[in-house]
């Protein structure tokens, strides 16, 4: 951005923040809160301009723009840096957490910091704060109550190896498809299911054509305020402290909001005829235990630590 060196007292700093979520998303509201926090803390010295809805390019391209310095902050998940480092594969390990509490405990602990530090060293990207996305669920056109029901299910997945492996291991027929085509795909029967956090089913109207949700909770994840590590290290201490504090405040706030909205989304979907089913996770966990074997050794180590809880 304009103030890439950001620092010397009195100097105006202008940052560009980009993400691929909509203007109403929690990600965008968190970005706005971060901008407010920073502006207040710096007495108007730091301004953050927000570009939602992939206006600056896909998140891959925005990350690259961060590295060359035309974008300063990008909101995305850990998995988004997997093409830079295998360590980011930790996000895609299925059925890793018992529940939301287990997930929060893990990432609030020192292990969470350790993982982020390792990712920074290997990829160059520093992932700060967290905007909780909630667990990913299985949203289908037919009821799925157990693993047997899911056999041969045509489920849309992003075109990534771990996703495909996971859903193949579960006996389904994973179908890579671009996100834009999911609604019409479900409507016409080209696919029978999609997997995402529950808000996705609501706000993309998927529930209208796929009114069943199985609480598989196969993945938990958050989005993070990503920075180019060297840029962050180049800031003076005062700026860094100001930034860290602003991000911490947003993270605390957004976790609370995310949990509230999760309940709200479930209530909305139930009112609109969606049937939720709890599954017995044991068989799902067992079917996918081997997936982690092909991961980076360090990731396997972390997985073992997390599973021990």
């Amino acid at each position: 951005g304009d103030g890439e060196d950001g620092g010397a007292a009195g100097e105006e700093i202008h940052w560009r923040l980009g993400h691929s979520y909509g203007p109403e998303s929690l990600e965008n509201r968190s970005a706005e809160r971060l901008a407010d926090n920073l502006e207040k803390a710096s007495d108007g010295k730091i301004t953050v301009e927000i570009f939602p809805s992939s206006q600056l390019g896909s998140w891959e391209e925005m990350q690259e723009q961060m590295e060359v310095g035309s974008v300063d902050i990008v909101i995305e998940s850990i998995g988004s840096v997997e093409r830079y480092t295998d360590l980011a594969g930790i996000e895609g390990v299925p059925f890793l957490y018992e529940d939301a509490d287990h997930y929060f405990e893990t990432w609030d602990s020192d292990l969470g910091d350790e993982i982020m530090q390792a990712i920074k060293e290997d990829s160059g990207f520093l992932l700060t704060g967290a905007i909780y996305r909630g667990p990913r669920i299985l949203n289908s056109t037919m009821p799925i109550n157990n693993l047997a029901d899911a056999e041969g299910l045509k489920i849309r997945v992003p075109n990534q190896e771990t996703y495909i492996q996971t859903w193949q291991a579960l006996g389904t027929a994973p179908t890579p498809l671009s996100f834009n085509e999911v609604f019409s795909g479900l409507e016409q029967g080209a696919i029978e299911a999609q997997e995402n956090p529950v808000n996705v089913a609501r706000f993309n109207s998927f529930y209208e054509v796929a009114p069943y949700i199985a609480n598989t909770n196969h993945l938990y994840g958050s989005n993070h305020f990503q920075l180019w590590g060297e840029t962050y290290d180049g800031w003076d201490e005062e700026t860094r402290a100001m930034y860290d504090e602003a991000v911490d405040e947003v993270s605390t706030w957004s976790r609370e909001v995310a949990l509230e909205e999760l309940d709200d989304n479930v209530a909305f979907l139930e009112e609109n005829g969606v049937t939720f089913a709890d599954v017995d996770r044991t068989e799902w966990v067992e079917a996918t235990l081997d997936i982690v074997d092909s991961a980076d050794p360090k990731v396997q180590e972390w997985v073992a630590q997390i599973r021990e809880g």
Partner: peptide, 13 residues
């Protein structure tokens, strides 16, 4: 404050 690398990148995009 706009590095021109972004121009090249948009072309690939």
């Amino acid at each position: 404050g706009i590095p021109l690398e972004v121009g090249a990148q948009r072309l690939v995009a």
